[in-house]
Amino acid sequence: MPAGLSVHVGLNKVDPGQYEGWDGALLACENDARDMAALARAAGFSDTVLLTPDGTVDQVTAALREAAGRLGPGDILLFTYSGHGGQVPDTTGDDDEADDLDETLVLYDRQFLDDEVNRELRAFADGVRIVVLLDCCHSGTAIEVPGEVRPETGIRMMPLFRQQEIYARDQSFFEDLQRSLAKDSPNGEATEAAALLISGCQDNQFSMDGDVNGAFTAALLEVWNQGAFRGGYRSFHRAIQSRLPTTQSPNLYTTGTPAPTFLRERPFTV
């Protein structure tokens, strides 16, 4: 029988000591992680949950690597993240970013590049089904937000001035990391893991926080309806999208070449 492992990360704040005094306080991200873990367990997954102080680069990486070591062809990984999103300039990595920016997951101790996520997913055996759900902001290059984004606005985006401040502080670190990630790619070329990803919004939009769940996670749970949903990932995505405003339009996309039969599966099928 296929095996299913899931990793759920939810950060209601970050370490202000690592983010120039900014703690990024949010309300519902830990709830999102717990609720997605409960969904996964009911579907037959074995889950790992990393909340706020445990949502570090080392712990997230370790959880994904452990899963990669245990899953084989036909098995499935579910990775969910709820928290802030950010961006850093991609000046030294592969030429795979049309906007010359790397999107980031704002983990407890530092920003985790999208290329780092892809590196961890590439470590999974061929034939492992990979589903990634990201409930965070990935603001595009055309978006400008004046001033501080305050926690009460409920926007899951690291404020732009804070992104710029921290990037200026850590520029050499990120440039070295981007070089090493590009160098570690097979044949020195940009490659992507075969995965299905559903993001909470488009690159030029914001994902909203909430009192209980984030807007995207709340819509997903409503559509899933405790397992009553029937249909494939594309219809699942469209149903979630229909429950959110046009200002937050979840994106469905694939990287690499996941099997067409995978996309037609009922979501979270082990």
Rank of each mutant, 00 (worst) to 15 (best):
T91D: 15
D135T: 11
A68I: 12
F79W: 11
P159W: 00
D109K: 08
A125V: 04
V132K: 05
S180M: 04
R179H: 03
D94N: 12
E175H: 09
P186F: 09
H138M: 06
R156T: 08
A123Y: 02
D96Y: 08
A168Q: 15
E192I: 01
P186S: 07
G72P: 04
L105D: 01
D115C: 01
R70Q: 14
E103N: 13
A182C: 04
V57L: 03
T153A: 13
E103D: 13
D75T: 08
D54P: 02
T153N: 07
C136G: 12
K183Y: 07
D176V: 05
L107Y: 02
A68P: 15
T141M: 12
G74L: 11
A123H: 06
R122D: 02
D99M: 10
D90G: 01
A168P: 04
A193Y: 04
E103S: 09
D94V: 05
I166Q: 09
F161V: 07
E120W: 12
P89L: 09
V128L: 09
V132C: 04
S185R: 09
D115Q: 03
L181S: 03
P159M: 02
G127C: 12
L160T: 12
R70H: 06
Y108N: 06
A62V: 01
D54G: 05
M157L: 11
S139C: 03
I143Q: 11
D54I: 01
P53V: 03
L78K: 04
L121V: 05
V149D: 13
L160E: 14
R110F: 00
D58V: 05
L78R: 01
D100E: 14
I143D: 11
P89V: 04
R169N: 01
L107T: 05
L77H: 10
Q111I: 00
R169K: 15
D115R: 00
R156K: 15
L71H: 04
Q178T: 02
A63C: 12
V88A: 09
N187Y: 10
F112G: 00
I155W: 10
L133W: 03
V106T: 13
C136W: 01
A182K: 15
R150F: 01
G154Y: 06
Q178A: 10
R70A: 13
Q111C: 06
D90T: 02
G140K: 04
I76R: 11
L64F: 05
L177W: 01
R150A: 05
A123P: 06
C137A: 14
A123D: 02
Q164P: 00
E120L: 15
T91V: 09
F174C: 06
V131P: 15
D100P: 00
D102C: 02
T80A: 12
R65P: 12
D135V: 14
M157Q: 13
Y167G: 03
R70C: 01
G69M: 04
R110P: 00
D135L: 09
F174L: 08
I76C: 14
A125M: 07
D114S: 08
